[in-house]
Structure formats: C-alpha cells, structure tokens
C-alpha cells in the first residue's frame, strides 16, 4: 500500500474492485476511464481491458504448457511436466467417463479446458493483492484487477457459452420438437398442464447458466474481498500487521482448496448439464 496515506479504507477497497475499463465517454470520445465514476458512466459499451488481457493470457499459458507437454511426450521415462499433465488429463478423463455415457468427442477436452483455465484464473487470487496493481501504477495504469474470475463479465460469458452448447446439443439430440416436449411434459405428464410444466422447466433451464456463472464469481469475489481486507490490516500498526500476515497465510491455504474445488465444480457441472442435454429416453 504505497499510497495508503492519501486513501481511506473504503477508497482502498473500491480501488481494488475497479476494473481497467476502455469505452466511450459521455462526451463521445473513446478512451480508458481514469476514475470509477467515469467507468460507470460508460455503460454497456465498455471493455474491461485487464480481465480480457489476463484471461486470454492465462488461456495461452494453458495451451502453450499442454502443447509443449504433448509435443515432447515420450513413451520412455516421462519428465516432470509430462507427468503433471498426464495426471490432470487422466483425472478429467476418468471424471467425464463416470458422468457422461454418450458418444461425443467434444466433452472431455471441453471439461479439461474449463478446469485448467478456470483454475489458472482463480490462481491469480493467491498473488498478494497489491503487487501487480502497484507495479502497473509505476507504468501509469491506475486500475488493474488481475483475477479475471472476480469479474462477472468473464464468468457469465463462460456460463453463457456452456448454455449455448446445452441448447445446441439438446436440439441436435432430441430435435426441436423433442426438446420442447421435454420442457412441456416433464414434471406432470398431462397435456392441459403443459404451460405450467413449461414455466417450471424453463426456469430450471435458465437457472443453469445463471447459477454456474454466479457461483464462480461469488466465491472468487468473496475470496478477493477478504484478501483486500487483510491487506488493509498491514497499515494499521505492528500487531495488526503481524496478525494480517498470519491471516493472509491461513486464508491463502484455505483458498487453495476453494479455487480448485470451484474450477472442478464448474467443469463437472458443465459435463452434467451436457449429459442431460444428450439424454433422449422418455420419462
């Protein structure tokens, strides 16, 4: 907290929760917002540059790492990287196999991508909250949020992509008629109750991407919030700073479980939803 003297605690928290936003100012010019108010005034047509850069960058790290492991794969004595990648791939493969019983080559790679990518995005949460923003400040960038999954835009975008896949495979495997019939006749198989059924099932369908995206966002947002509050303790005297150091370590250790779990839950639920979309037998 280099500039903590000039900030109150509230400002410090707000600063940490503001994205670097690029968009159209109310006066018509395009540019990067200098304050949180300016970012808010940009409205819908704005891009969170930091979230986009970090998430795409981490995606490239994932692809590069796994590609490297695949290209240097050997049937002899495997190296550390190959072992590591093999463990992850086998773990995801087993999990998918136990949940998803239909024929589809897309599902396991999708689950692997989601798991590793979300895990890497969550892992940025363990970087102490002030390091990268303060570094960015030296280069004249005022806002920098390095955990993409604390941005609802990123998590909801991933959830919506999964939702599109659910709709696509539902229509592909059951036909449009079959899909609508499943929505209309499912809890009560009696024709006059079809509108009631449809409303119930429609809410269930829409709740899937909503809960998927909000669960990841909520967990990581809460985690980030607690890290920021702990960081606030470092400027409140020696005793508090010492306690803050202990808290930071304990919370980071606990958070290590949470971030892995949430990445795994996101991947598994995606597979479960897609398995439901492939289900064709009559109920």
């Amino acid at each position: 907290m280099a500039s903590a003297e000039a900030q109150t605690g509230t400002e410090y928290i707000r600063h940490h929760l503001t994205n670097l936003t690029y968009g159209q100012h109310p006066d018509g010019t395009w540019g990067i917002a200098q304050t949180a108010e300016e970012a808010g005034a940009m409205g819908f047509w704005s891009v969170h540059v930091d979230s986009m850069a970090w998430s795409i960058g981490l995606g490239l790290v994932f692809l590069g790492l796994f590609r490297r492991a695949a290209r240097h794969a050997t049937a002899g004595v495997p190296g550390g990287l190959q072992n590591f990648v093999e463990i992850i791939v086998e773990f995801i493969d087993e999990t998918v196999e136990s949940i998803f019983s239909h024929k589809n080559d897309l599902i396991a790679p999708l689950a692997l991508t989601i798991f590793v990518w979300v895990f890497l995005m969550n892992l940025m949460d363990l970087v102490p909250v002030d390091w990268v923003p303060e570094l960015a400040k030296l280069f004249g960038v005022h806002y920098m949020k390095i955990v993409p999954s604390t941005d609802p835009n990123i998590t909801m975008a991933m959830a919506l992509s999964v939702f599109v896949l659910i709709l696509y495979y539902s229509v592909k495997c059951k036909g449009l008629g079959g899909f609508l019939a499943e929505l209309s006749f499912h809890p009560f198989p009696w024709k006059p109750l079809a509108p009631v059924n449809f409303m119930l099932e429609f809410v269930t369908l829409v709740a899937k991407p909503l809960s998927l995206g909000l669960r990841l966002f909520g967990n990581l947002y809460a985690g980030e919030m607690i890290f920021v509050l702990i960081a606030l303790m470092f400027s409140a005297g020696f005793v508090f700073a010492l306690a803050g150091g202990v808290f930071q370590f304990v919370w980071a250790a606990f958070h290590l479980i949470v971030i892995t779990l949430q990445a795994f839950v996101f991947a598994v639920l995606t597979v479960v939803y897609l398995a439901q979309a492939h289900e064709t037998e009559e109920h």
Partner: peptide, 12 residues
Amino acid sequence: GLVDAVPMIAVG
C-alpha cells in the same frame, strides 16, 4: 462446492 458457494457469495 455447491453447498459452499451460496454462503460464500453472501460473505462477499
């Protein structure tokens, strides 16, 4: 993970 998520959102 499912059970844990809702209170964590409330905490945040």
